[in-house]
Amino acid sequence: MIDVNHLSKKFETLEVLSDVSLHVDKGECVCFIGPSGSGKSTFLRCLNLLEIPTSGEIFFDDVSMTDPKTDINKMRQKMGMVFQHFNLFPNLTILRNLTLAPTRTGLLSKDAAEKKAMELLERVGLADKASAYPAQLSGGQKQRVAIVRALCMEPEVMLFDEPTSALDPEMVGEVLDVMKSLAASGMTMIVVTHEMGFAREVANRVLFLEGGKILEEGTPDQIFSHPQTDRLSSFLAKVL
């Protein structure tokens, strides 16, 4: 479903990603772990072209994302993204946050979008917040809304950029639960995370990034129980 070939990204002279390749199948949940500055978030942001790769190719459903002729807005509609800092629209109610994109892009009519939004809010237990504004929600509630906002576009893949890093510890669980049920429903997910428990439990595949390169790749069991490199062993020793 997603093919990344020899992706590199430079900021000025700093090389953040060097020659990263990845293949993700439909229904897979792939987790990226690694130290700060290893390029995890940059890699994720390259997938929907929030960052423009310096070189390399990205294919989504066999359409090249990096081709200038590709309608990037159309492609992004199929890729939901959840951010570390939620990035809900503070000037709009929760319901409007959810329905803005589906209605403006012509995906759904206003009624259909509201119906879908309420269904999804119901599922994450936030139906009573539909007319509230983001400022009235807790961090965990905001992130659940942000996930629902992405889901309202009926995406084929969900990208998560450290979705629990900005949350109070006691709110991490409620967001991870939503993500787990999403993975269980067969959604293709690419997750950048520091939640090793989540990666171990939910991921089909875990990739360890260090210095802009994929240092190790494997099943959660291989990565967490049988690390091959010293770097991964020392990383795991510090975070587990």
Binding site: L50, N73, R76, K78, M81, N87, L88, A146
Partner: peptide, 11 residues
Amino acid sequence: GQMEASRSLGL
């Protein structure tokens, strides 16, 4: 982040 969130939704 507001621009990124909105653009990531395909707007």
